[in-house]
Computed example of a mutant assay.
Amino acid sequence: MRLLSLARAAWQAEGLYLRRSGRGYAIQAGLAAAAAIFAVLMLVMLHIAAFAALVPGMGPVWSALIVASADLVLAAILALVARKPPRDVVAEEALALRQAALRQMGDTATQAMILAPLLRSQTLKKGAIGAALTAAVVGFMNRR
Results as ranks from 00 to 15, higher is better:
P60Y: 04
A52F: 04
S21V: 08
R8G: 10
P86C: 00
L80H: 12
P56F: 01
A34I: 01
R87Y: 03
P86E: 05
L102A: 08
S5Q: 13
P85R: 03
L18S: 12
A33P: 01
R87D: 02
A101T: 15
R19I: 06
F51W: 14
V81H: 08
A50I: 00
R83P: 04
R19S: 11
A50D: 06
L102F: 07
E93P: 01
R103F: 11
V55C: 04
V90W: 03
V44S: 11
A50P: 02
A68C: 06
E14Y: 12
R83F: 11
Q28I: 05
F38R: 04
G15P: 01
G57Y: 08
A101S: 09
V40P: 00
L72S: 11
E93C: 07
L43C: 11
L46A: 14
L80W: 14
V61I: 07
G30H: 05
S63E: 05
V90H: 12
L54K: 03
A75E: 09
M42N: 14
A68L: 06
H47W: 13
L80S: 14
Q99M: 15
A101I: 10
A7C: 00
S21H: 13
F51A: 14
P86G: 02
G57T: 15
V44E: 09
V73M: 02
G30P: 00
V55Y: 12
A64N: 06
V90S: 13
A70N: 02
L54E: 02
V61K: 08
L6S: 12
R87H: 05
K84Q: 10
R23M: 10
A70K: 03
A96L: 10
R83Y: 13
Q99I: 13
P56W: 04
D88N: 12
A9N: 08
F51M: 13
R98H: 12
L6Q: 14
L65Y: 10
S21F: 14
R8M: 11
L78P: 00
W11E: 08
A9P: 00
Q99N: 13
V89F: 06
E92T: 01
R2L: 09
A26I: 04
L46H: 14
V55G: 06
L43W: 07
V73A: 04
R20N: 09
E93T: 15
V90T: 04
L74M: 12
P56N: 05
A36P: 00
A91P: 03
A33W: 02
L4T: 10
L80A: 15
L102E: 11
R2Q: 11
I27D: 10
A26E: 13
L97W: 09
L78R: 07
A91F: 01
V40Q: 08
